[in-house]
């Protein structure tokens, strides 16, 4: 069974369709990269996946639960990481984890806290308030909170923004480890080398519509047409420039 099923997802703001009949699926253990130019509809798609705003049309199912009709059950299995970490100003690092454990009803969460704090190098900051943390540390805390309830689905919006090189390496390791443990991961990023390194499949979105979907090798092959040696970046540029050319000729 697919962990994430998106079928003909459409999100409209008034008459403007930010996402149009967008479909893809992610299996447990799979990492899917959502890439596209600025304003393509990536964040809108991820927010719809996380149940932050309801789709105008189409369906989003997480572990078999509809995000609109069975929102609570679907969200129990999900962790969403927005691009901008917005923490509670008046809770310490430790208390953020305690609060998250309460929200997701995590049984016996205390033994889980120290390994997470170690993983994200926050152990010596456990009594610090968000105002005492750098942006990168806030991002790490946000991710640590998301991992606490061992979610089956992880949704990242630009996960590496604000992290230092070591933080980026640890983040990549964390995502890979959780995917290997069976989590379905969707991540959006402009860093195509990261997508190439981490993702099994890629879906490219432009002007709210899906313009390419498949494994990275499939996409490269499709673009290279047997020539070989094409990077994901070249494939992406080739795919996303086509509609622009089409527009300029009409």
């Amino acid at each position: 069974m697919n962990a994430i099923e998106v079928v003909n997802l459409t999100k409209k703001y008034g008459s403007f369709a930010a996402v149009k009949e967008f479909s893809f699926a992610v299996k447990p253990g799979e990492v899917l990269g959502l890439v596209g130019p600025n304003g393509a509809g990536k964040t809108t798609t991820l927010r719809a996946l996380a149940g932050i705003h309801p789709p105008s049309d189409g369906q989003v199912r997480l572990c078999g639960f509809d995000i609109v009709n069975d929102a609570v059950e679907a969200k129990k299995r999900l962790a969403f990481f927005p691009d901008e970490p917005r923490l509670f100003d008046y809770l310490t690092v430790d208390e953020h984890l305690e609060f998250t454990a309460g929200i997701y009803r995590v049984r016996d969460f205390r033994p889980l806290v120290d390994p997470l704090l170690d993983e994200f190098e926050l152990r010596d900051k456990r009594r610090a308030l968000p105002s005492e943390l750098s942006r990168g540390m806030k991002q790490k805390l946000m991710i640590a909170c998301g991992f606490l309830h061992a979610p089956e689905i992880l949704i990242f919006d630009e996960p590496l923004t604000g992290l230092d090189p070591l933080g980026i390496r640890r983040m990549k390791e964390s995502i890979t480890r959780r995917a290997k443990a069976g989590a379905a991961v969707v991540l959006s990023s402009h860093l195509l080398h990261l997508v190439e390194e981490l993702c099994d499949t890629v879906v490219i979105i432009q002007d709210g519509a899906r313009v390419a979907y498949g494994t990275i090798d499939d996409l490269k092959w499709q673009i290279a047409q047997g020539r070989g040696g094409v990077s994901l970046e070249e494939a992406f540029l080739k795919i996303t420039e086509k509609p622009a050319e089409a527009r300029s000729t009409t």
Binding site: R47, G51, E73, I103
Partner: peptide
């Protein structure tokens, strides 16, 4: 009133 800037996270919680 104070949690509104964190509405994205609030809305992703498993609670009606």
């Amino acid at each position: 009133r104070l949690d509104l800037p964190r509405i994205e996270i609030l809305k992703s919680y498993p609670i009606t």
